[in-house]
């Protein structure tokens, strides 16, 4: 079984892509339950697998000590696919289908960093076969990130510029996930694009939105995941944004940061929403922070199009 990271900064369409992939396993016209995804779609930073495979209580280790061991855990998991296959088979049986997917897609929000010992945190080629690097216009990430973190947009913009941005990094409590260093938005994307350990497929959220079936086909082809074209088209139908939103409205989404807060995880799911959500000052700030990477990814900057005013 192959392993492919779905690597992205938060709020870049990672969960939507996982839902699309999950719905390849749907039977008939019944969408996969957003709260019952196939087990191989989990996240690389889960605490439980770390504790279970190392037999060490991660809650007794410092973040750096955990990071030192994460490559060992990820390469062990990669080298022992029998556990995932067993879980995938059990899920298929439960869903009334047969067969197991040939590829395990694993969400990851960690930037591609090295441990203090100089090893790739995600174990390089010993941890996965490749990575789909999913990026989204940071001007659309910012309002979504603010909603996710229940902060204002300015705070989200500041967080995206923080070169030490991390999830689950407070030291006075324990989270269900291990600390994930994401770095700034630009550094995050660069870390994945510029590493040379793993082959990558760069996918822009905007392309996924514009031609979902085509983008999904590219992802599957990159991952050596053979499936029938009709399954791809059905998955696109069953995981359309309105369906995900409706499921969340009806029963909640277990992966939402605070399921009871009333904030929708599946919020807008559009490209260019920033035009009516950000002030011009916020746009200018994001472009100043991330302009170089935005241009590299082909996002047009407002600041480039504007005539230069005299002071």
């Amino acid at each position: 079984m192959r392993t492919v990271w779905l690597a992205s900064f938060p709020k870049s369409g990672n969960t939507w892509l996982r839902m699309l992939i999950a719905n390849l396993l749907a039977t008939g016209e019944q969408p996969i339950d957003i709260n019952d995804l196939p087990p191989q779609g989990s996240i690389a930073s889960g605490r439980e697998p770390f504790d279970e495979w190392t037999q060490i209580e991660s809650g007794l280790l410092t973040f750096d000590e955990i990071d030192d061991l994460r490559p060992r855990v990820l390469e062990y998991i990669y080298a022992h696919p029998e556990e995932h296959i067993a879980r995938a088979e059990a899920y298929s049986r439960n869903q009334g289908t047969t067969g197991t997917p040939p590829t395990r897609f694993v969400k990851v929000h960690d930037a591609y960093t090295l441990t203090r010992r100089g090893e790739p945190l995600l174990a390089g080629r010993r941890g996965a076969d490749g990575a789909v690097v999913l990026v989204r216009d940071p001007r659309d990430v910012a309002p979504s990130f603010a909603n996710h973190n229940r902060t204002g947009i300015d705070q989200a913009i500041a967080t995206m510029a923080n070169r030490e941005c991390a999830f689950c990094a407070q030291t006075n409590r324990q989270f269900g996930q291990l600390r994930q260093r994401m770095l700034s938005w630009s550094d995050h994307v660069a870390s994945w694009l510029d590493q040379s350990d793993l082959p990558i497929l760069l996918l822009r959220y905007e392309e996924l939105l514009a031609d979902t079936a085509g983008a999904l086909r590219n992802v599957l082809s990159f991952a050596h995941y053979d499936t029938e074209p009709k399954r791809i088209h059905r998955a696109v139908r069953l995981a359309r944004f309105s369906e995900l939103r409706a499921q969340e409205a009806a029963k909640g989404f277990r992966e939402a940061p605070r399921p009871s807060s009333g904030n929708q995880f599946f919020r807008r799911g559009i490209a260019g929403g920033w035009r009516d959500e950000l002030t011009s000052a916020q746009v200018a700030r994001l472009e100043a922070d991330h302009g170089a990477m935005m241009k590299r990814l082909g996002y047009h900057l407002v600041s480039d199009a504007m005539p230069v005013h005299a002071e």
Partner: peptide, 18 residues
């Protein structure tokens, strides 16, 4: 065996780095 441990008969070896 796992990333940090081994079992051989009635012996279990656990290595916690550092």
């Amino acid at each position: 065996n796992g990333p940090t441990w081994q079992i051989a008969g009635q012996q279990f070896l656990l290595a916690i780095p550092g």
